[in-house]
Design a protein around this nucleic acid. Structure first.
Ligand SMILES: NC(=O)c1ccc[n+]([C@@H]2O[C@H](COP(=O)([O-])OP(=O)(O)OC[C@H]3O[C@@H](n4cnc5c(N)ncnc54)[C@H](O)[C@@H]3O)[C@@H](O)[C@H]2O)c1
Ligand SMILES: NC(=O)c1ccc[n+]([C@@H]2O[C@H](COP(=O)([O-])OP(=O)(O)OC[C@H]3O[C@@H](n4cnc5c(N)ncnc54)[C@H](O)[C@@H]3O)[C@@H](O)[C@H]2O)c1
Lengths: 254, 254
DNA sequence: ATGTCTTTGTGAACGCGTGCACAAAGATAG
DNA sequence: CTATCTTTGTGCACGCGTTCACAAAGACAT
């Protein structure tokens, strides 16, 4: 299997770099704050500081959108808000479904930040019959059986998966089959999807592990300056060094 | 089968690329699953498929840790689990505090995935006097007034911020002043921290906006070409491969 | 109009990450 | 011990993203 790979060289010349796309929402947020304070224009230096990025990077990012700035003055806030919103597709309404209304799904449903950017929670879906019919964040939870109909009727193209990891792939496939082409996955699962479907994942466990790595490094370097070069974290922790096996405590799909 | 031989992580461990660090938890998860199925060894090809990455990339990633594989055979699962865990600092216990016990904070507190990897919720902190004393996920919520004492007494170095955005910077500063050196921020705020403090950000709104961008682009291309109803795909691929994702893991360091 | 001053837009250099391709290492069989 | 086969470890090339540095563009004053 694994047919010949031939997708990359597509018409990317007109495309905005992925790294830039990922920063546009950041700029938009900073610009919105300025807009609310009725600031008319902003320089790349000021805006970059507000967004926490390098100013040269910001200017290059904006250059991909076009020449929207005025030299010697800066960027018109309102105009830039509009341009970025349009570029990101936020001038239209995006109906979103959340599948798996547990701790996390309910929290997301209750989150007000979605609607503020053109995202509308079109439906909450759960497989538990107990959940169906219940109100969460003012929305009635619907049963998985109706998933296809819900997606079709509401023209949903973005789905959020907050189910247990074991069923995430299966839920994903049903979403895609029903017409969803963008998925935000919170389950710690590697989703396999057809070409043309975008998946982004948010993995809290991975974030913490990355932090732990750097934390350990910091502790190790600190110890190296005072103690020996042994980075075996002796601080506030009983020994955990054992054989490579026999231990493995409470291992579970992280 | 003790493959134990010339294993020297030695000096190399100081230079692990950040991109590799971000993937180690992914490998660890796949390896843990294999371990539970008592699979003794695994090839880079198989493990790469399970983790959704390129096999050459995986081998190169592992090469930064040392030569833990056996040519002609593959990698010893248990041994690799141990090595990665150690490299990530997961062989020790990391006490974590969550600040802001609202919708999201409570969901995180209830999340079992924390403890499964050596992360222990040491305390839940909220500024609301109504919250103090209440039980969330079997843990008593404590008031912000005691933040410094809690962090000090528990030796907390990792903090999670799930407060409203307006107070996130202020909370961050108190955390850092109290000794926290790693922060996972869920508030849509650009945090400013001193050198030596790591910040990672999880921003749902940004994730959705990135999806919306690609969704709009897909719709545009579809309309521009003929009127193809939908992109039917024959070949399935790992979403983590490349795609518009490009491995921008919803997070940025600061 | 001319000059000065501010700030944009971008060419170019550089570094990092990715993936190919292959020699070497080691297992396994004869 | 030798041959063969499998799979690792990595040299290398390539492309993307970041950053510097500066010419050019425009505002503003005179
Ligand atoms: N809660 C967190 O803070 C957190 C953090 C990181 C990752 N996650 C991940 O997010 C996911 C959800 O976490 P949670 O804490 O909300 O879990 P949960 O158990 O509270 O909720 C899961 C929900 O999914 C529903 N469900 C199960 N199978 C389903 C199906 N086939 N179709 C539709 N719905 C189905 C369940 O009925 C339940 O309501 C998990 O994969 C978890 O690993 C959660
Ligand atoms: N809920 C979500 O799904 C979601 C999604 C994306 C981002 N966020 C962000 O996460 C944060 C929390 O969201 P939420 O929905 O849980 O909000 P929430 O209002 O439900 O909870 C916020 C909690 O923080 C507490 N708090 C306020 N000021 C505090 C302080 N100074 N110190 C300590 N605690 C304080 C409040 O008492 C409250 O309990 C927000 O910044 C939000 O933008 C939430």
């Amino acid at each position: 299997m694994a047919t010949g790979r031939t997708h990359r060289p597509a018409t990317r010349s007109r495309g905005i770099p992925e790294a830039t796309v990922a920063r546009l929402p950041l700029y938009l947020r900073a610009l919105t704050a300025l807009s609310e304070r009725s600031v008319p224009t902003v320089s790349s230096e000021e805006l970059a500081a507000a967004a926490g990025v390098n100013s040269a990077k910001l200017r290059k990012d904006f250059s991909y959108l076009g020449s929207y700035g005025t030299r010697g003055v800066g960027y018109d806030v309102e105009y830039l808000v509009y341009q970025i919103s349009r570029e990101l597709g936020l001038t239209q309404d995006w109906p979103v479904v959340i599948v798996g209304i547990g701790n996390l799904g309910a929290a997301l449903a209750n989150y007000g930040g979605f609607a503020s950017r053109g995202f509308r929670v079109a439906a909450l879906i759960d497989a538990d019959p107990e959940m169906a019919g219940k109100q969460v964040a003012g929305i009635t939870v619907q049963h998985s059986d109706d998933m296809e109909r819900i997606i079709s009727e509401n023209g949903v193209s973005i789905g959020v998966i907050t189910t247990p990891p074991g069923v995430a792939q299966q839920v994903c496939e049903r979403l895609v089959a029903a017409g969803v082409t963008s998925i935000l996955n919170f389950a710690p699962t590697v989703l396999s999807v057809p070409d043309g479907v975008d998946v982004r994942k948010v993995d809290l466990s991975i974030e913490l592990q990355i932090l732990a790595f750097h934390e350990q490094r910091k502790a190790g370097e600190e110890a190296a300056l005072t103690d020996g070069p042994r980075p075996v974290a002796a601080t506030r922790k009983q020994s955990a060094d054992k054989g490579p096996d026999g231990d493995v405590p409470a291992v579970m799909p992280a």
